[in-house]
């Protein structure tokens, strides 16, 4: 078997319908497009031979990725430009290969290395009764508290909204969300419980390392309670916290009877060392 000497790093965008692919589905789609491209990919040796590759950090289902990373090992050197063309010819709509570069074959894998992830989200914050805003997975107390309190507050919501300005910023949804975030940042970590089948899983994330730039909010003029949120996260060998999960945890930490809907979510990921090299 030919030796795998060349490590090609693909930077790609995953948009449109393909935002709904799971990480595993995305990896398989990339593998298949590499096979179709005819590039001389390397195959692992052993029990179950498969294409030698290393995907970047997982993207939450429903999130668009503008600059995602995927490494594949080749047995022969193919110039970057023809390689890019071959990949582009074989790809599917919604999966755009933006650029390819060769990286040191001995460098750490993308899953083991630190990747900087720039997220931009469009969120809708409101008080209870946002039925369509169900999250793909319930995030422990946050979802429960939101749903439970929602019913009680529902009737008073209109009056509350009118009185909101008068009552001052202390009850404003965004203020409460920011307050929750501040509490989380103070402790420096966040623990998430999630149900995986029947099992409950708990995972604690270190926010000091994981959160590179705290969320910044920009009110949208389209609708009340709608904001553009930007934040930068760092994923490492232990994984990374998802931006939607972080925001929901912040709501839970503020004890605010609020609902949060993620309307859209986009990510731009870059390996930290490359980021450093670029700047």
């Amino acid at each position: 078997m030919a030796e795998a000497t060349f490590r090609l790093r693909m930077c790609y965008a995953k948009t449109g319908r393909l935002a709904y692919l799971s990480h595993l589905e995305l990896v398989r789609a990339l593998e298949r497009l590499i096979r179709r491209s005819g590039l001389p990919f390397a195959v692992t040796q052993g029990f179950s031979a498969h294409m030698r590759h290393a995907p970047g950090p997982a993207l939450p289902v429903g999130t668009r990725g503008l600059g995602e990373l995927f490494d594949v090992w080749l047995t022969e050197y193919v110039k970057a430009e023809p390689a890019l063309h071959a990949l582009r010819r074989a790809t599917v709509p919604g999966l755009e290969i933006r650029e390819v570069t060769y990286v040191d074959p001995k460098a750490k894998g993308l899953a083991a290395t630190h990747v900087i992830e720039d997220y931009s989200l469009e969120i809708q914050l409101g008080r209870g009764a946002m039925a369509e805003a169900s999250a793909p997975e319930a995030v422990g107390a946050a979802a429960e508290a939101g749903a439970g309190a929602g019913a009680g507050v529902g009737a008073a919501a209109e009056a509350g909204a009118a009185a909101g300005v008068a009552a001052g910023a202390a009850t404003e949804p965004l203020f409460l969300l920011k307050q929750g975030l501040a509490r989380l940042l103070e402790t420096g970590e966040v623990t998430i419980e999630r149900k995986k089948g029947r099992r409950e899983q708990r995972k604690t994330y270190d926010l000091r390392a994981g959160l590179v730039a705290a969320p910044c909010f920009c009110a949208s003029e389209e609708a009340e309670g709608r904001y553009q949120v930007a934040m930068t996260l760092r994923s490492g060998p232990q994984g990374s916290i998802r931006p939607d999960v972080l925001l929901r945890a912040a709501l839970a930490a503020s004890d605010a009877p609020l609902d949060l809907a993620i309307r859209s979510s986009t990510r731009l990921a870059l390996a930290e060392e490359e980021l450093a090299a670029k700047s």
Binding site: R17, L18, Y20, S22, V61, G62, E132, P136, I262
Partner: peptide, 19 residues
């Protein structure tokens, strides 16, 4: 599309597969 974030395995409803 707006329903896809609240259902299991949304990728089975997106169509547009290669070929």
């Amino acid at each position: 599309e707006p329903l896809l974030s609240s259902v299991e395995r949304p990728s089975r409803y997106i169509g547009h597969e290669h070929n």
